[in-house]
Design a protein around this nucleic acid. Structure first.
Lengths: 233, 233
DNA sequence: CGGTAATTTGACTCTTCTCAAGAGGCGTGG
DNA sequence: CCACGCCTCTTGAGAAGAGTCAAATTACCG
């Protein structure tokens, strides 16, 4: 990394805002964007990290999508989160020192690694960097809490909520809120929501019949977002 | 806060280790134990903080027990966590700046507040304090992940897991692993596990009939911990 | 173009929920 | 100290939701 950093991987990244500290005016050279490695490509099924591995860094997802995968002692899989472009992943290892889950590409994707050594040094030296990380951590914790709060709700509500959540997250990152590719199998959607793949199938069919969504293969079009939101309440 | 602090609220706290940074030799005067306020008593149903309130600090629970309560827009309640003596609560507000949940005493309890202003100052100045907080945060995140991973599992497994978890947490804090008071109604246990109170009742009866537990009122005795563990796998 | 994996749908089963009624516990006030 | 009322707990019966098993169809990859 050059001391007088100019241009580089983050200059033309449309998500570079993600990595920049918010709320304070800071010299550019102290942003996370300065320490991120150039984006690497990961193919479908490839792991950025695995459960139990020593924490090596945070990943800023540039394109594609990832699943944060937890596997229990019996081999059962649960998808803790779906990560989209413009989001940061790796917090399951940031504090404990070892990743709790695996981060797996759902399609050909690219991500920048923000190495752990740099994180430690810079977040100690630069309050703004530290604040950015804390802010992102807060988002993660809130998201976990919100998901834990839905355990008692019926499958239909959880699935509707999942679609609404994806829509708003895509929208927040500058993508269409109505149309996107969902690179998950029915099994994976089920592993995320805690239901079987057959239930996911039936509910999606029901949503489609009701005119709320339309999908062909992996492509999803949300036709009536309000109706979906009404299901989640 | 006196510069030359001697004695004080933490000196004879049996849980003072909780608040002390681990893994490094640090002058005592830089521990969380230095900034904690003297314990306050909270009565059953009283809130240490409520959802939406500005983050005011972390709470070290000295005695009794608390529930971390999430309420959604429809008024449905979900208990995100049960907090026991010797544990820290308040991380749902530490990073975002506003508490996401309410922290409510389940019985007459006492807790020390570690005020937010002191946390910020001290964790910036003292790496050891910062490290302690990060370590505790890691525990919280891991716990959330582990609980999210159980959403698909049947009620019996979740309830058995809940009892095993309580047992090991009591045990870790120097209490009996086999006998404890569970100051939760069946409704609250259900709100924690995502099932109805009737299901909790039936399962507890089943566990009792099977000779795994014994309970009279709020008092629980675990008779066959291994059998319970086998149910959770 | 063939083979494998994913999806869809049906029929049936099982778990869990809902509704309901009765029993038990606890605190308050007489 | 007892009685009353309220809240909690327990248990049952029936309904609904979700799971399981199975087969047919479709999509995808090499």
């Amino acid at each position: 990394m050059e001391p007088t950093f100019k241009g580089g991987p983050c200059t033309d990244c449309r998500f570079s805002e993600v990595c920049k500290p918010k709320g304070v005016v800071t010299p550019q050279r102290f942003c996370l964007t300065q320490i991120a490695k150039r984006a690497r490509t990961f193919h479908k099924g490839e792991s950025l990290y695995r459960s139990g591995m020593r924490f090596s860094g945070i990943y800023a997802i540039k394109s594609g999508s990832m699943k944060l995968l937890h596997t229990d002692s019996k081999g059962r899989e649960a998808i803790i989160a779906i990560m989209l472009p413009g989001e940061l992943a790796g917090f399951d290892g940031l504090f404990s020192g070892n990743y709790r889950c695996a981060l797996v590409a759902l399609e050909t994707s690219s991500a920048c690694e923000i190495p752990s050594a740099e994180i430690e040094t810079l977040s100690r030296q630069m309050p703004a960097v530290h604040r950015t990380l804390m802010h992102k951590t807060g988002e993660q914790i809130e998201r976990s809490i919100d998901r834990l709060a839905t355990t008692k709700r019926p499958a239909e509500e959880r699935l509707a909520g999942f679609l609404v959540d994806l829509s708003s997250r895509y929208s927040a990152r500058g993508f269409s809120a109505e149309e996107f590719y969902l690179n998950l199998t029915r099994q994976e959607i089920g592993d995320h929501l805690g239901v079987t793949l057959e239930t996911v199938c039936r509910l999606l069919s029901r949503f489609e019949t009701a005119g709320m969504i339309e999908f062909s293969g992996k492509f999803v079009r949300i036709k009536d977002l309000e109706a979906l939101k009404k299901l989640t309440v």
